[in-house]
Simulated scan of single mutants.
Amino acid sequence: MTLTRRHALALGAALPLAAPGLALAQPREMRLGILTPPGHPWNLTALRFGEQLKAATNNRLSLTVFHAGQLGSEAAMLQQMQSGALDMGWIMAAELGSRVPAIAAITAPWVVRTTAQVGEFVKTPVATGLFDLLPRETGTIGLGWGITGMRVMFSTKDISSLGEVRGLKIRTIPSPTFRDFYTALGAAPTPIPTPAVFDAMTNGQVDGLEADLAFSWNQRFDRVSKVILGMNAQFMPVAALVSGRVWAGLPAADKEIITRLIKSNLDQQIAELVADEPRIIESFRAAPIPIRPIAAADTDAAVRAFDQIWLERAPVLREMRRVGATLA
């Protein structure tokens, strides 16, 4: 059959109506990068999301998770998402906060004081509203927060109060909020690659480290420590991000599925971590190693010193503290 001009025009007019259905029918493999290793709760959550995504779309959308920084650093993964070369990345607030001070403020000390409060806080409008800054600043879309528990300090010195942190060399996350907080306490923040921390504590290169309990139990930092100081000051969430370029090209129905599944899986990750923390604490106590709490009254001066620096950089911190106080 000869394709006449009239037939061609008729076919062209029909294509816009058919294209959405054709687009929905196309199989697609999505790629997700994450820095943490296989077996980490965030990685397990990403894998579970991928399985549910495949089931919800009848195998049309699949997900490959690249663990342990296989695609490069978090900065590199952000660049790949900006270009659309990477579909998704689960990026920690430390990396995002180095670019956007308002996001760094979510890791300010004592915004909340328990892991259960962390789980509630990251779902509040002041926390999820930080995602509004991402399209302009990073070219990504934020769909939800995953969490770690509140962080403690493992010390090779036998300390029992916040004042005794002064003068210690503490391995911290290379984040501006962590650096400024520990500097305000009189400590020397010392960024060391994670694989080197155990040996650094053994040979005296550092006097301790701050870390979340779940990660620390897997690494057994209690074996090179004399005490755990229950700082309960900071936490380090991870943002589930999608490339803005990729997101713009997805049908609305796929956006709804992805958003819903990521939210439900992050909610599950949060609930599981909160429920499991008492078991981890008991594991350390049975090790045994003393866990000494910080008196709440002793934190006021440290909060004032930190806020003197950060309220100007990130005014949203004031609202974060107000919201956090309602969760106590």
Rank of each mutant, 00 (worst) to 15 (best):
R5V: 11
A8W: 12
A13Y: 07
L15S: 03
L17K: 13
A18Q: 08
L24E: 01
L24M: 09
A25T: 00
P27Y: 00
E29A: 01
M30I: 02
L32C: 04
P37Y: 00
P38G: 02
L47M: 07
F49E: 08
E51R: 12
E51Q: 13
Q52K: 12
L53R: 00
R60I: 00
F66Q: 13
A68S: 15
S83A: 14
A85R: 15
L86V: 02
G89D: 05
M92E: 14
S98Y: 11
I103Y: 04
W110Y: 12
T115N: 04
T115K: 08
V118A: 08
F121C: 06
K123C: 11
P125S: 09
V126Q: 06
D132F: 03
P135R: 11
P135C: 11
T138N: 06
M150F: 11
R151V: 02
D158F: 05
S160Q: 14
S175F: 11
P176I: 10
F178A: 15
F178T: 10
D180F: 09
T183H: 07
P189L: 07
P195W: 03
A196L: 13
N203K: 02
Q205Y: 11
L213C: 12
S216K: 06
R223Y: 01
V224D: 03
Q234G: 07
Q234H: 07
F235M: 11
M236N: 11
V238M: 13
L241S: 11
V246H: 04
K255D: 07
K255S: 01
I257A: 00
I258H: 08
L261M: 12
K263Y: 01
L266C: 06
D267L: 10
Q269T: 14
I270C: 05
E277R: 15
R285C: 04
I294V: 13
A295E: 15
A296S: 03
A297V: 08
D298Y: 06
A305R: 13
I309V: 14
M320S: 14
V323E: 04
V323A: 01
